[in-house]
């Protein structure tokens, strides 16, 4: 049995497999191909209400609305391309004893974050 040939063949097969799997992993690790988006408060621990929309989906149009308890305070639209993020400043001055909810919708998908001030 030609051992050297077996070693060379194994090395070649492994190299081919590793390169292929590395390319696959590179694609899988790219969150911008996963069609997801997320929203979060910039400062989770204090009472500030600035929030960020991070888009990794194909849809770039986002609508957001700020609710104080059940009342709408303000709303707006943002265009955020895939791979980009946008921070939207919201003032919390004068708000007390209210649940402030940020509702973001994009392509029938809704996400909510909130703080009880």
């Amino acid at each position: 049995m030609n051992h050297k040939l077996i070693i060379l063949a194994t090395g070649f097969f492994l190299l081919t497999s590793f390169v292929f799997l590395s390319v696959i992993e590179g694609k899988q690790a790219d969150i911008s191909t996963k069609n997801v988006w997320m929203v979060y408060f910039e400062n989770p621990k204090d009472k500030s209400l600035n929030f960020t929309i991070e888009n990794h989906s194909s849809n770039a149009n986002f609508h957001w609305e700020i609710m104080a308890d059940k009342d709408s305070v303000t709303q707006g639209n943002s265009v955020i391309t895939n791979g980009a993020k946008k921070t939207i400043p919201v003032s919390s001055d004068g708000i007390t004893n209210k649940k402030i909810t940020v509702i973001i919708t994009s392509d029938n998908n809704e996400k909510t974050i909130y703080k009880n001030l």
Partner: peptide
């Protein structure tokens, strides 16, 4: 619960902060 704020939201994970 009033003391928990949801500060991060994605499809498959959420983060709550205990104020």
């Amino acid at each position: 619960l009033k003391e928990f704020w949801q500060v991060y939201s994605a499809d498959d994970i959420a983060i709550f902060y205990k104020a």
